[in-house]
Structure formats: structure tokens, C-alpha cells
Amino acid sequence: MLKLLEDSLKLQDYLVLGAILFVLIIAIIYIVKNRCKYSCNGCSRQDCKKRRK
């Protein structure tokens, strides 16, 4: 099992882990939101959706 889970995590660990997860989620949302930039010619998201339709 993960040692991370084996050991009893303290409140401070949870806080740091929470902060990392928060940044990770923001980073993933940013990458996903901007994925459109990598698939078409730098247009706005609305244009992108319109083109896909």
C-alpha cells in the first residue's frame, strides 16, 4: 500500500496535499480549456466550438 496512506497523515499534511490538488486541478482545467489553442489556429473557444459543429 502507499506509504503515504499507511502513515497517519497529520492536519498539516492534508492541508499541503489539498493545496497541491487545488493547483493540479487548476493546471488541468487550464490545459483542457486551452487544448483548443493546440487544435486550431489560435481562435477563441466559441469559434472552436462552432467549427467543430
Binding site: L4, L9, L17
Partner: peptide
């Protein structure tokens, strides 16, 4: 501060 060693490594 006695953080979990895996967490220290991750950061």
C-alpha cells in the same frame, strides 16, 4: 515541521 516524507519528496 515533521511533514510526511512522501509529501516532502513530492514537493
Amino acid at each position: 515541521a515533521d511533514f510526511n516524507i512522501v509529501l516532502i519528496s513530492l514537493i
